[in-house]
Write a protein that binds this DNA or RNA. Sequence first.
DNA 1: AATTCACTCAACCGCAAAGCA
DNA 2: ATGCTTTGCGGTTGAGTGAAT
Length: 262
Amino acid sequence: MVRTPCCDKSGLKKGTWTPEEDRKLIAYVTRYGCWNWRQLPRFAGLQRCGKSCRLRWMNYLRPNIKRGNYTKEEEETIIKLHASLGNRWSMIASRLPGRSDNEIKNHWHTHLKKRTKMKPKQYLQLDKELSSESSQCETFTNNRESEAESSTAADPNIDHDHQVLSHQILEASQSSSPEETTSNMNNECLSLSPSNSNNDYVPTLTAIDCLPSEDIFIGDFWTEPFVQDDTYNEYHPTYFLEGGGLILPNAYFFYDDGAIDL
DNA sequence: AATTCACTCAACCGCAAAGCA
DNA sequence: ATGCTTTGCGGTTGAGTGAAT
């Protein structure tokens, strides 16, 4: 499924990402944000190009990312949007919170394309429906807000304290402008859920993103990103387990070399 | 049991757009 | 206005996997 690891002529590693590389990337981006993808791998201790790091983060490690298990509603949305927008996967992904453009593209090619070919009439009908929608380009922020709201307020599996905390974080996130909210990848709140039943490495991450930066980063990481951080106790990200639970911030530790103890 | 084949999807590549000096 | 750097996007590739033979 994945390419054989190899190196290009400049010594950069290619192919499958190892758990260790993932850890380094998670640790670095969680701590300092993605201030410069090109420089990031050097400081994060990764033998990868920035592009590869960005792609890995955006498609696999990013908080809130959903993987597989497409709902009927999601598939219908993809089909509608594709009828209207064509292969503009990033646009389509922006209306499906938690889904990456790459995954949607793959899902389209492997499942949905065939389906639409089999039902041309229905496909055209969906296209018509979409054209008549008044708010065709509602903001991504709205989607995210409603998603976050429903995931924290409506889920009976989340205990009350966690719901309160989640709501406070959500409110804090809403105080920033939409532009800041959608563009600031640094304000993401990361969670790591346990491995699967086979104890395989499965970096499942869910979170509420768009937190105000002051809730996450201590000091000025834009200008001093590599200052040794002795203030671990002041670093209080909140970790949301898939399904709604929370893990305490003290659940893992960062090391100076970018390693992360989970 | 061995082989073939189709499918899946993580990751790569090249290009264009955006940002900046 | 220009050129360089960085980011983002869409197309494509190819190894792993499971079903079929």
